[in-house]
Amino acid sequence: MTGNEAMAEAAIRAGCRAYFGYPITPQNEILEYMAGHIPAVGGAFIQAESEIAAINMCYGASAAGVRTMTSSSSPGISLKMEGISYLAGADLPCVIINVARGGPGLGNIAPAQGDYFQATKGGGHGDYRMIVLGPATIAEAIELVMLAFDLADKYRVPVMVLSDGMLGQMMEPIMLPEPVDPTLLPAKPWALSGARGRDPNVVTSYFIDPGDLNRINTQRQSRYHQIEENEIRYRETETSDATIIIVAYGAVARIARTVVVMARSQGIKLGLVQPITLWPFPYAPLRALSSQVNTILTVEMSAGQMVEDVRLAVADRAKTPFYGELGGLVPTPKDILREVKRNVS
């Protein structure tokens, strides 16, 4: 099973019963897997006419109370941004997988991390936040897809799993979790189920009165604060005695695990912090580590996006160099080790 197929299967096991998508490389296997498998569990599948249509189908299915997902890759995710803003504005849960590729524009189909800003800082309009989860291995991807559905329902927010072409296309042995029975999930009293014996439910992001919109937005912001308080996730490797630390997420974090082993065998006290929630970002743990180490090296497959969050966390308590590869090139363990060495000497 490729990473893409594993994420699709994880979604079905999480109780996802509506999937809408549009072909784009390198995420086609999610669409194709769903085409073959979600109807078998009674779920809805449509190959939409565009990503815009797909995300709006999600808006509808989610409003009807069903666990809903769409997936795409960078150019298609750009088209979904309007819909994501509407999901956020109407407090609808939805899971969006981005199997990111090289950009901007059509870019290429190689793995890349240039969509971090778009994902974590709000690519759509308005004051909204989206939980963003960055898996580094297929096992993590499965776990995080399952988690994404739970968080989306719990906080009534869109949740993105920010993966990339490397993870989507590769294979490794995995354990699949037990399937969730969607009929046993908590009820959604706000869903559009027909106003029989109750007042009508309305799903909208339209509040013409500034006072109303202010109140709604403020309530939503307080939910965002809860998320920041409760849901930050990250993984530390060999940090306790480290003098230099790499911060990396997704595919790069995984490559960096090998770099830690290589560096340690050469006597370099290297550690690794992998942010798993990219929003909310683990500022506090990085801040804590920053007074213990000399250098916090951020490595990304981008021109430097997450590094801005790292620098916010670290301020001037440690050096914060950056190493990035652009255009879909994947840094190898040797490349990263070279950067580590340059920064310890």
């Binding site: 490389t25 390198p26 290429n108 189909i109 190689a110 072409g165 490397m166 296309q169 590769m170 294979m171 490794e172 042995p173």
Partner: peptide, 21 residues
């Protein structure tokens, strides 16, 4: 893929990473 699968069948850790597109 076959080698990776055989490795997994044998209980080894494996990864398989294709060029694609």
């Amino acid at each position: 893929k076959l080698l990776a699968q055989a490795g997994a069948d044998y209980g080894l850790q494996v990864t398989w990473l294709p060029s694609y597109g």
